[in-house]
């Protein structure tokens, strides 16, 4: 298995490079799994946290905000996972004696947690979006991509652009309703 430099790893994540993603998984996932499983979590939690952490990192890479000062990628990933898992436990209000130790070296914890919070929210929204009917998803995507209504009507086989507009609002309304009805939504207000 070849080794990668930190720069290569970050670039690999940015490009969704499968080899790099596999390398990261093989090299660092076991520790993270151990961390979560030995602190009131199970395998699924570990996997969620691992994915969440990588996506937080991914978003930071896209925004050019990543700074790895004097620490390896593994340490960075591990400390983010730890931070996020801690936050999850706090949310679940579980009693635990798992506190971040001094070795949490991520310097912008607040920012990371905000990103995490937003990601959780997006996950919920995306889940409800995926459960919409196919035509609804398509109409919403097209209009967010700024495709003109006339063209949308054409693609979807609607009679008129007026109907396309109506359909768009109906779908959005349905989506917003479903999201608001989800008990998890309250966590975000």
């Amino acid at each position: 298995m070849r080794e990668y430099s930190v720069e290569e790893l970050l670039e690999g994540i940015r490009q969704h490079n499968t080899d790099v993603l596999k390398f990261i998984y093989r090299s660092y996932y076991p520790q993270i799994q151990h961390l979560v499983v030995t602190n009131s979590g199970n395998d699924d939690d570990a996997q969620d946290i691992y994915q969440d952490a990588l996506i937080v990192i991914y978003k930071k890479i896209l925004k050019n905000e990543i700074q790895l000062v004097d620490c390896s990628f593994g340490t960075y990933l591990y400390s983010i996972c730890k931070l996020l898992w801690l936050k999850q436990l706090e949310k679940k209000k579980q009693n635990n004696d798992f506190y971040p130790e001094d070795d949490v070296i991520v310097d912008d914890n607040e920012e990371l947690l905000q990103e995490f919070e937003q990601m959780e929210k997006f996950k919920l929204f995306q889940k409800h979006f995926r459960s919409l009917r196919k035509d609804c998803r398509k109409v919403l995507e097209l209009s967010l991509e700024k495709v003109p209504l006339k063209k949308i009507a054409e693609i979807m086989g609607y009679k008129s652009d007026k109907y396309a507009k109506k359909r768009k609002y109906q779908c959005k309304e349905k989506l917003v309703d479903n999201i608001k009805k989800d008990p998890k939504f309250k966590e975000f207000i």
């Binding site: 969704h16 993603l21 990588l54 996506i55 990601m119 979006f129 995507e141 967010l144 989506l175």
Partner: peptide
């Protein structure tokens, strides 16, 4: 935010790949 989430396809793709 819902609109942003719908358009956030890259992260969803990355999650599926992971």
């Amino acid at each position: 935010e819902i609109n942003q989430a719908i358009m956030d396809k890259d992260s969803q793709k990355l999650r599926n790949e992971l």
